[in-house]
Structures are given as C-alpha cells and as structure tokens.
Amino acid sequence: MSRIAARFKSLAAEGRGALIPYLEAYDPDLETSLALLKAMPAAGADLIEVGMPFSDPSADGPVIQAAARRGLKAGATLPGVLAMVAEFRKENAETPVILMGYLNPIEAYGYDRFCTDAAKAGVDGLIIVDLPPEEADVIEKPAEEAGLDIIRLVAPTTSDERLRYVLSHASGFVYYVSITGITGTRTASKHDLKEALPRLRAATDLPVAIGFGIRSPEQAATAASIADGAVVASVLLATLAETLDADGKATAETLPRVLEQIRALAAAVRAGVPAADQTA
C-alpha cells in the first residue's frame, strides 16, 4: 500500500480527517524550508504538500506568488526540491509528501527521469496545476511505473459528467478546490462544502481533501470532518512572510511561528468539529 493510502486508512480508523499543510520549497532559503519540512510531522501534519517554485504561477494568489519568488531567488531548482525531500526521508518514512507545481519545469526535467528521481527521493504524489487529464498522457505512464500518485484537482465548475472523466485519471486522493478562484483569496461556506461532497463521493472511492481558502483552525476542522482532509497553504506562507527581516531572510521567529500555527490547526482537526457547529 502506498504511503498516501496507508495514511488515509489509519486516519479513518482514528475517525478523523487529515491536516495537510503546504510549504514552498526554498522559502525563504533551503535550510529553513528543510527544517520546516522536517518539523511538520511532529507539529501535526498528516500529509505534506511541497510547492515547486515556478516563475509564472498563474493559478495562485499573491501569497503563494511571493513565496515562489522567494524560493526561486534562493536558488530553487527541481533537482534541489527532490534533494530536499530525500533529506526529509532519511528521518521520516511514513508521512506522505506530495509535490505541487506547474508543468513546465517537469517537462524541462524530462517526464521519465523526473518520475524515477521523484520516487527515489521519496515523493508519493504529484499535483500539477496546469495539467488537465486531456494532456496528462505525457506523465501518467511514467508516474504509474514509478509508483507516484497523480492527484487531481476538481472544482465547483466541474460538471458531474466531467467529474467522472477527471476522476478516472486520479489516484491517491482527490483535491477539491472549494472556490472558483486563485489560492488564498476566498473561503467556501460550510453549506457549499456540504453540498459538494456527496457529488464527489458518488464519483469516487478515493479520499477527498479540501483546499483553497482554508485559514483558521475552525475552518480546517470543518473541512477535515466533512471531507477526509484539509489543505492549508496561503495562511502558513503569510505567517512565514511576516517573520522575515527587511532583506527577506529568515529570523529566529520563522520556524516557531509557522509550527505554532500548524499545531493549532492540528489540534482543531484532531478535536473534530465543535459541538455548537454540528448543526450549522
């Protein structure tokens, strides 16, 4: 069983959803982001998304754009990101790591070689924002051979018919983009999420994680209880950005502040939905 499947199975046995925090590789430098990655599981991360910085993140909001710029400025490359995951894997064999990013750096690396190297580094899955199933033939076979899951994004705009098509190309879990928009801007209402989930459940047996617009511990707990996991990204990157000095360098505050926020999110996800909220 893959790390992703094993993790969702054990969480289901515990009766709770997953907290899936995001970090941008090399943000604001390799050492800090590697230290953050290594510390995330103990802070309560059940799965981890690692962003691969790209020069033109056209589906991302200002917070992730800025993080990607910092990562690139710090020298992020795809080989560098894979080396970072390999370093993490020396200490942690269980926590699934999913790489998230855009297609062009992967195409430049070469699809076969990238999948082989990513699997060797200990990557479990890929989320490629600008690769719909229509174009995915370039990577589906090498990913499958390497044992990498291709995690599909689906959106409120995805029709039932399209949902079936998209999910026939999915593995690992399904990432439900809960809003129409870019990352870190709007937040979906609980009502919208509750409406959306049955539609997804009817179309797939894979676990469903909700992302885009989850900011507070309460929102994370709600999403993780309605679905099988909550992805939290922009709010963590915003906290990290706040701790940087005037030159954009990490400070003594950087790791503690981000980890503290992850701990608060994890505590809420583990506690489940507050009783007062059950009926809302």
């Binding site: 589906a59 690769l131 719909p132 229509e134 994004l153 705009t157 995805t158 983009v177 129409t180």
Partner: peptide
C-alpha cells in the same frame, strides 16, 4: 481535436477550474 498542431504544440494546459470554460 485536442487543439494540438503537429500532435505536440498547443493543447489545453489550464487549471481544472478553467477546463469547463
């Protein structure tokens, strides 16, 4: 029909939110 010129260039490389549009 996939929007490819010569089977390779072009295509539809957009986020899923945009695919239906």
């Amino acid at each position: 029909e996939r929007g490819h010129f010569g089977g390779w260039y072009g295509g539809r490389f957009v986020a899923e939110t945009l695919m239906p549009l």
